[in-house]
């Protein structure tokens, strides 16, 4: 298909596409809408300093959880690529990682805003979790820098898959293990009570569905990225 034909197709509007989305995507849309409404409307206990900002828990933490989920599914696809040599596995791994990074950046931004209104600063180098999660993001950005360095698709896929295994192996240490051993303002860190000890049940009723909702949104976005990559690859090929 010639590339100049694309705008013409994009401008068409056909009613038969209204119900073309897979049912699970509608469920994700409705689910997350309910989560957002509940996240702001549910009555929560006012904790000093945190006050209304504790509602951010249902957005900030699920973003990190869904990022971790996408990264680990991504590394499974990278291993599957190394076993099979199937390029579709590499594309899936790249798409999952791309969306994972977006969710991670959203997690950093919501965390930074939250820190400003509770700890009084947008960013602090004294807080290990913030800095280690930023480092994890940089490790994953390097995954895409590495991908862009190769012209040969097979070589790129192989190097990226190996790198992705390294990158994914750093996540448990950078986000969960090391921050828990150091003094930190985050819950669960050295000397602090854990998440399940201090979180109000009202927030937890919204928090767990929010994790599921954000994972669903991440998978939806991954699907879009993967499909657009396939299309641009097909369109880039000479007829």
């Amino acid at each position: 298909m010639p590339a100049e034909a694309i705008p013409k197709i994009l401008s068409k509007s056909k009613s038969q596409f209204i119900f073309a989305l897979a049912i699970w995507k509608y469920i994700v849309a409705v689910w997350l809408t309910i989560v957002i409404i509940a996240g702001f409307a549910v009555d929560i206990p006012m904790i000093p300093i945190l006050e209304e900002t504790s509602r951010n828990l249902v957005f900030h933490v699920p973003m990190w959880f869904s990022m971790t989920f996408l990264f680990f599914v991504g590394v499974v696809y990278s291993i599957r690529y190394l076993n099979s040599g199937n390029m579709e596995m590499d594309r899936m791994a790249a798409s999952l990682t791309k969306v994972g990074i977006v969710l991670g950046i959203c997690g950093l931004l919501t965390g930074s805003i939250w820190a400003r209104f509770t700890w009084g600063t947008w960013w602090t180098f004294a807080e290990p979790k913030i800095n280690l999660s930023a480092m994890a993001m940089m490790i994953y950005v390097a995954y895409f820098v590495l991908r862009s360095a190769f012209d040969d698709p097979q070589k790129r896929a192989k190097m990226a898959a190996v790198y992705n295994i390294f990158a994914a192996s750093t996540i448990p240490f950078l986000l969960f293990i090391i921050p828990r051993q150091l003094p930190s303002l985050h819950p669960g860190a050295d000397g602090n009570p854990a998440f399940d000890e201090i979180t109000a049940p009202e927030l937890r009723y919204v928090f767990y569905p929010a994790v599921i909702g954000f994972i669903g949104l991440g998978l939806w976005l991954t699907d879009l990225v993967r499909r657009s990559d396939i299309l641009s690859e097909k369109l880039a090929k000479p007829e």
């Binding site: 694309i6 197709i9 056909k14 073309a20 989305l21 995507k25 939806w220 499909r227 299309l231």
Partner: peptide, 14 residues
Amino acid sequence: VIRLDFKLTRLEKQ
């Protein structure tokens, strides 16, 4: 996102 999904579906079909 929904609009983008529809457009991709349309392009794939085409």
